[in-house]
Design a protein around this nucleic acid. Sequence first.
DNA 1: CTGAAAGCGCTTACAG
DNA 2: CTGAAAGCGCTTACAG
Lengths: 346, 346
Amino acid sequence: MTDTARGTARRYGSRPTMKDVASRAGVGLKTVSRVVNGEPGVTPDTERRVQEAITALGFRRNDSARILRKGRTASIGLVLEDLADPFYGPLCRAVEEVARSHGALLINGSSAEDPAREQELVLALCARRVDGLVVIPAGDDHRYLEPEIAAGVATVFVDRPAGQVDADVVLSDNFGGAQDAVAHLIAHGHRRIGFVGDQPRIHTAMERLRGYRAAMAAAGLPVDESWVSLGATDPERVRSAATAMLDGPEPVTALFAGNNRVTVTVVRVLGERPQPVALVGFDDFELADLVRPAITVVAQDAARLGRTAAGLLFRRLDGIADPPRRVELPTRLIARGSGEIPPYEG
Amino acid sequence: MTDTARGTARRYGSRPTMKDVASRAGVGLKTVSRVVNGEPGVTPDTERRVQEAITALGFRRNDSARILRKGRTASIGLVLEDLADPFYGPLCRAVEEVARSHGALLINGSSAEDPAREQELVLALCARRVDGLVVIPAGDDHRYLEPEIAAGVATVFVDRPAGQVDADVVLSDNFGGAQDAVAHLIAHGHRRIGFVGDQPRIHTAMERLRGYRAAMAAAGLPVDESWVSLGATDPERVRSAATAMLDGPEPVTALFAGNNRVTVTVVRVLGERPQPVALVGFDDFELADLVRPAITVVAQDAARLGRTAAGLLFRRLDGIADPPRRVELPTRLIARGSGEIPPYEG
DNA sequence: CTGAAAGCGCTTACAG
DNA sequence: CTGAAAGCGCTTACAG
């Protein structure tokens, strides 16, 4: 004989509170709080009565209220470029796992590579009082975060450095990875190598370009500026950039693709051409080994980037306040075939 | 001459409140609230003084407190299987975009295909009082959600139906898609077709199996039970299952792969075999057109699944209370080569 | 145009 | 073992 409905019916959408549970169980508010939070000092009989009231009313503690009182929200924010980009999936999941192991929830959002949207998202997360932030920056000026960081919002930047603000940052060795990629092509006999990269305002794009130039210079090779193209990574742009390099007056015999999206389009372009062209891509991706030729890549460990960043974040949340760190993770060249194609001299 | 530090210094980690702003600006609390929320009825001069105090103190409204008072949290929860799975990236992003267009944030987490973890996550989100939930269920009994749904938490299930609970659900036409895939193989002359699917407790796996059997039956073809294998989708299991079908006493000449992860492993297995074997995979994936042979697939529209589910959710949040809906989205067979290989009769 | 009081649903600090 | 009071930082409902 339950009597859930007797006098305690509540309007749809409103939920029972500890006060409701207390009055139903005939105890004080604090006793309910003790039972809900498993604190000691409640007789078995009282506890049972409270539990019954909780079940009958369908009570669930309102963590928003709890958070307001306790200070820490046990949630962290993650702002990345695009949740749908396969590069960020493992990174996001890694951050989630670390958060979970610390009992925290993850709130995330995509900046869509738009600095204004990044700022809007970050500040919305700060207003929700997340304990900390992991940010893959779209913009290059993060001074808007200064009051938040000063107020104690732990912040770690990943994949790209922060702009104008001093904070922990976790990066891949973009320069070294690019150098390795281009040196690999040079070692296989190439002298005219093209670079198709992301937009110049993106830090990783510039670092990879720097690595490309360094490797060429180290081998004493000149770089014709028509071999370098930075810009949006949509298929149309990449296709025309690659085609121009392959068909230009000084045609390249090899291409270095600046990220996973560029690589995929370049693979399509090369598949349509009669002569073989060597290719190394930055970023590994599923099935790179199944395409023919299989794609040689410089792999970053996205999950490790996320894990490392989240680790630094919780270190800060544990109160460790040493100077901001800069962690650089190594990349790894994986030779699969496309990067070992010799120069084709028509 | 700012005087930020004069008497208003706060300990690290604590943030100024409206009360602090009010006393610094020499106005009442409610006036600060009016300025912060852009409400009318404040003289330009007062507003200016309040704005100055806000800037000097680095004030940012605490949305947790606001939420507690207002009721709605302007956040929705998304529980999926694995953020790192490329199938869920676009779905997640689509849900995010719809949430964003409604001014809501997204809190998400991975169930890792573990019903206990799914429940833990869902209830944690309910305790945070998300306005609504989009759930890709791992478990098959969601009665634990009944009190939450009764209390007004809008809930939409995606990709797989809810268990034991009446709620909106958005699915792909798994049965029809599987039927199309197998019928396609039959049309290309196959009579012995294998099916490698996901674990039998997963709804989509069973629906796709049902489609496989229906297509075989419709063509009057018998199904040898050694041609059907359901189980974990890790490479080892899939590899041995596929190999057994290909090397068995009644060897199959074509395979139907039950999802993207199975397909990828099957492609690897087939690449190592001397004789050609036809393949159709459920789920499209990047580069499916670049592998040789290119992979014929039954594609689902993951982004549309997410968009549709989030749309239904916000419809509920807008107060529309008609009976739960079941939406089934069509799949699309994309012939690329692997599914058009004729039977190889050794 | 402006602000003091009450309250959202909890926890903290105390007192019995 | 138990509970009444105060307070977290806002908004609501009212009064001037």
